[in-house]
């Protein structure tokens, strides 16, 4: 019966029992690692489905903070701050719920539903409208930084065309993966103080900036002044119909981040292989053992770079800009 030291030696060190190559780094063992990696990542991604409530990113993202950070950026460039619009916030929430319900990550839904439908549904008569989307960012600051790093999203945030903003953060299952989406809608209403004839609004160019293109005679209506009401932080978790307030945890929560856990898992698996290759190389060099096989140095270079990428990987994704203008 092989003892522990024999097992460790067989797995980690080149010797007679493993054909002068650590067992862990044999091709069949690496295939086993791949399978473990895939299965493990799958389980981590779907923890919520087995009844474990996973604390995702949404609880760390406050809609008020997103608006504040956006206005901070605008202040730096000399633009006036955007006022919070409850209508745009409602439209943003509706857009987020629609994305989760229909399983899409895009400005335009697969069934052709345009972004401005949500503006119209809440009765927001816009002169200019824009949309920024982001998903799976752990903090509002990182989402803002990602938008600012993208010229088109940055244009939306800093545009002088808009004077109102609404933000929603929704969390749910998007195509089988727990996802947190930030929807940021920008708008400027028709100037209701001008009781003029037909107003033609030309569609702005794409890149996330959309505007109505219909000819509409503006009606004289009450001017809606965005209120300074406290900005709610609502998160839709799981079911679209159910909402829970951030800061009120449910009865049982496992406080793990799926992204960080998957990173740790990949990093651990890669580290094990990397260390084994290194130990194997040291022993082979020391013993001057002749061996037919791949270049260990190349494997070490490749796996080291994979480990660096895994460790430095950032969560979060923003959508590519829209193509042509709408109208």
């Amino acid at each position: 019966m092989p003892n522990l030291s024999y097992t460790i030696t067989h797995l980690l060190l080149p010797g007679y029992s493993n054909n002068q190559k650590a067992k862990i780094i044999h091709s069949e063992s690496i295939i086993g690692f791949v399978l473990l990696l895939v299965v493990g990542q799958y389980i981590i991604s779907h923890l919520s489905k087995v009844g474990i409530s996973v604390l995702g990113y949404a609880s760390q993202i406050s809609t008020g903070e997103v608006i504040k950070l956006t206005n901070d950026k605008r202040m730096v460039t000399g633009e006036p701050p955007l006022a919070y619009s409850p209508e745009l916030a409602e439209a943003a929430k509706a857009k987020g719920e629609d994305m989760l319900a229909k399983g899409y990550w895009a400005h335009v839904a697969p069934d052709g539903t345009q972004p401005w439908k949500f503006f119209n549904d809440v009765g927001y008569k816009y002169r200019y409208a824009g949309e920024n989307l982001a998903k799976d960012f752990p903090t509002p600051q990182e989402a803002i930084d990602a938008w600012m790093a993208s010229p088109t999203h940055r244009d939306n945030m800093l545009s002088s065309k808009y004077d109102e903003v609404g933000v929603a953060v929704v969390e749910g299952d998007l195509n089988g993966v727990d996802t947190t989406i930030i929807i940021q809608l920008f708008g400027k209403k028709y100037d209701t103080t001008i009781a003029s004839a037909t107003t033609d609004i030309s569609a702005a160019s794409g890149n996330g900036i959309i505007s109505g293109s219909e000819s509409i005679t503006p009606e004289v209506t009450a001017v809606l002044t965005p209120t300074q009401a406290p900005m709610p932080t609502l998160v839709a978790n799981g079911s679209i119909a159910s909402l829970r307030e951030v800061g009120k945890p449910s009865a049982f929560q496992v406080l793990i981040s799926p992204f960080s856990t998957k990173k740790g898992y990949s990093a651990a698996a890669t580290s094990i292989l990397l260390i084994t290759f290194t130990i194997d190389a040291v022993f082979i060099l020391k013993r001057k053992t002749a061996r037919i096989g791949g270049k260990t140095l190349a494997h070490i270079i490749f796996l080291t770079m994979i480990l660096v990428i895994v460790v430095l990987l950032q969560s979060g994704e923003i959508l590519p800009p829209l193509g042509d203008s709408y109208g």
């Binding site: 690692f33 990542q41 791949g294 990428i309 990987l313």
Partner: peptide, 13 residues
């Protein structure tokens, strides 16, 4: 197999 492992380690995150 090392290529597949490396790609899987990153892509599945």
């Amino acid at each position: 197999v090392i290529c597949i492992f490396g790609v899987s380690a990153v892509v599945f995150i």
